[in-house]
């Protein structure tokens, strides 16, 4: 990974719920975790990926000959084309996208330099208001550590408020070297039980919890823990108590609950992937209220969803 270029899948201004003020959120592509409920599945793979809108495909098969990697097949009988996605990983040109007349094919992911990203953020800053800034999200921004480091220094030089949303799964040295350039961190705590964490995210939580403690101990900025509420996975009383105890142990006192939602479902379809939480009902408000009360017992400020004081 070059230190000059990062791979993003989106940049969104007008974001009101990812830190103080209005913000521009930068979505990095690539993540060490594979959370089953992930709402940004295109943020997981650190390569550019093909998105296929089946329902608007005109089935003229113009993409088939254009594809240089022979990844696209014609099943016949007027069915949509098939894509062998592992072949696309090596692709750089995505000629199929250009060939498609109905624009049913798109690429998720684009490369950007620190300078280009900074330019856009500089443009946006006049719309943030006095307290806004930039939030790095994803995916996992730390996957692009060298890029992120350069970009954050540039932000600091330009008096831009910086926030990062992270899974916590990155080498401590990387966090350590970035914290001085961050004003704000959202730190995800998915599950306190390591075995369950592995089952839900494909990844151990050991490094994550260690990083959380170290950041809390060594850094002055505002650290807010974020807990996705995934029914049946991490919303048991036991896990929530463990989470509250852990947070209290770090000496920090804020948590932001992110209730599961189904809005990412269609993205799995575009990626040709299975969504494991399809049909899983989002948590009800009374349930969230109970969780808020639980955290309150530990003197932890708990905010549900976007109902935050910042």
């Amino acid at each position: 990974m070059s230190d000059e270029t990062g791979l993003l899948f989106d940049i969104q201004g007008f974001s009101f719920h990812d830190g103080p003020g209005s913000r521009t959120v930068v979505y990095f592509k690539g993540c060490p975790l594979r959370c089953r409920w992930c709402a940004n599945p295109e943020g997981q793979d650190p390569h550019r990926e093909l998105l296929y809108h089946r329902e608007q495909c005109e089935k003229d098969n113009a993409c088939v000959p254009a594809c240089t990697g022979h990844a696209i097949g014609i099943p016949g009988n007027g069915l949509p084309v098939t894509v062998q996605r592992e072949r696309c990983r090596l692709c750089t040109g995505f000629e199929c996208v250009n060939a498609c007349n109905s624009r049913a094919l798109q690429v998720s992911g684009f490369f950007i330099t620190v300078g280009e990203l900074l330019k856009q953020v500089q443009r946006d800053r006049r719309y943030w208001g006095s307290s806004g800034g930039v939030t790095l999200s994803g995916g996992e921004p730390m996957v692009h550590y060298p890029f992120v480091k350069k970009f954050l220094s540039a932000c600091v030089d330009s008096y831009i408020h910086t926030a990062m949303e992270t899974s916590g799964h990155a080498p401590w040295e990387h966090y350590h070297s970035l914290l001085g350039q961050l004003d704000w961190v959202f730190f995800d705590l998915k599950c306190m039980d390591d075995a369950r964490h592995r089952a839900g995210t494909g990844c151990s939580n050991r490094l994550i919890l260690e990083n959380a403690k170290k950041i809390a101990a060594s850094w002055e900025g505002r650290l807010i823990f974020r807990v996705p509420i995934v029914p049946g996975f991490n919303d048991s009383r036991g896990n929530l108590i463990a989470t509250a105890e852990f947070i209290a142990g770090t000496g920090k006192h804020e948590v932001n609950l992110l209730p599961l939602h189904q809005l990412g479902t269609s993205k799995y379809d575009l990626l040709g992937r299975e969504y494991h939480c399809r049909g899983l009902t989002p948590p009800e408000i009374p349930h969230l209220k109970k969780i808020e009360a639980l955290f309150a017992e530990y003197s932890i400020e708990c905010y549900s969803g976007c109902d935050t004081p910042f």
Partner: peptide, 10 residues
């Protein structure tokens, strides 16, 4: 995690 849907329609 934030949902990246809005700018999706290319």
């Amino acid at each position: 995690m934030q949902d990246g849907i809005p700018s999706y329609p290319e």
